[in-house]
Amino acid sequence: MYLKKIVLAVSAIGLVICGIFAYKVYGAFFTPNTIFNNEQAFVFIPSDADFEEVKTTLTPLLDDIDSFAAAAERRGYSSNIKGGKYVIKKGMNNYEIINAIRSKNITIKLAFNNQETINDLAGRIASQIEADSVSLLEAFNDSDFLKKNGFDGNSKLAMYIPNSYDFYWNTSAETFRAKMLKEYHRFWNEKRLEKAKVLNLTPIEVSTLASVVHKETAKVDERPRVAGVYLNRLRDGILLQADPTVIYALKLHTGDFNQVIKRVLYRDLELDSPYNTYKYGGLPPGPIAMPDITAIDAVLNSEKHGYYYFVANVENFGYHKFAKTLSQHNRNKEQYIRWINSKKISR
């Protein structure tokens, strides 16, 4: 009888201990453990993060970081960390939080527009994904990659088509580059390639001309007409004489791409650079900036006309006056020079 009581007592104590243990386990896994007020919070975990770094990142968001750490240890997360961008929702428990940061890496909407240089592109991308600008520049300038895929140091900017793309935040520089090459080939579909062929231009040459068109006018509706002018000149072997190419040549010559040049001077036209289309015939060696899609399509769908010249229209700012003859162009140009002199724009 006495032995029976001891067995019952021990069993009761065991049940209590099991109950306490179960309660603690339940609490560690299933009690809500967030303290932020928003409906959700984003967590960025670097690819090389250790568990201490994860805890440091999560501490401002969680009510009890120790219970999270204990749960993460039990579930093996602390030794199997995955980099990425994750969402933690208000009221999540440790079980849900661990599931979220273990296997629910979400994409970001990465976007870039018409960047001036490859350095600008690297900076723009680095501000949106984990890869830094140094690793991105190394990937962008990789001569073996460029040669293998038909680009060089002058044309490499043409590979990046401005748009919005889905990426994981923890994307490496090489992965970003690989996807951009795939997007480049997707953009240059059979229809666009055929249009380029009709113009007797390669896709890179189209992008090069588009970069000039893009710089000449911000008016999307005017770009096909501007493109038509340059295509007329190319067809007839006339120098492009495009001011934006001279400005690019000046920036390249000085190494200062931040300078603002509002007026091209006659002495600038003497600069010996393959980008100076007042001295050298045909297209520049590569894009003078990153053209957007509207500029590329403006070249591929250029307006058919007899214009060979254009100059800024001071009566309709942002647009240009077009001319078929040099005498007509010179009259239009005189009006523009009077205006620019009146504004005392010397550079």
Rank of each mutant, 00 (worst) to 15 (best):
E222R: 10
E222L: 08
T294A: 12
K324L: 07
A41L: 13
I88C: 06
K156F: 02
Y336T: 00
L58T: 13
L61T: 09
Y2I: 14
D142L: 01
K262N: 09
R223Y: 11
E130Y: 13
A323L: 03
G237K: 02
K344Y: 05
K5A: 13
E52T: 14
F30P: 01
D120F: 00
I45F: 05
I118S: 02
L209E: 01
D120S: 11
Y2T: 15
A218H: 04
D272M: 10
L209Y: 04
V213R: 00
A126K: 10
I81C: 04
L231D: 10
L110E: 06
D66I: 13
A289S: 10
V16G: 05
A131F: 04
G19V: 03
Y280S: 12
N189I: 13
P285F: 14
R74F: 09
Y77N: 07
I81M: 03
D152Q: 05
Y77S: 05
G286P: 03
T31E: 02
W169Y: 03
E73A: 15
L121H: 05
I45L: 06
I345D: 06
I98C: 07
T294R: 10
G123S: 09
D132V: 08
L15I: 15
P285E: 12
G14K: 04
I161C: 01
D236A: 10
N80P: 03
A218K: 06
L146V: 04
S172Q: 06
W169S: 00
F68K: 14
S346D: 13
I247D: 01
G237Y: 03
G306D: 13
E270G: 06
I204A: 04
V25G: 11
Q115A: 12
L283T: 07
R267Y: 12
M92K: 02
P287E: 00
S135R: 05
L58S: 12
Y165L: 01
S11L: 14
I296V: 11
N258Q: 04
A126I: 07
D166M: 00
T277I: 09
A41V: 14
V220A: 13
A298D: 08
V134K: 13
P291G: 00
A139Q: 03
G255D: 04
F68Q: 10
L234C: 08
R235C: 10
K55G: 09
P32Y: 07
T171Y: 05
G27C: 07
Y280K: 15
L181P: 00
L181F: 01
N119V: 11
R102Q: 12
E334H: 05
E96A: 05
G14M: 14
N258K: 06
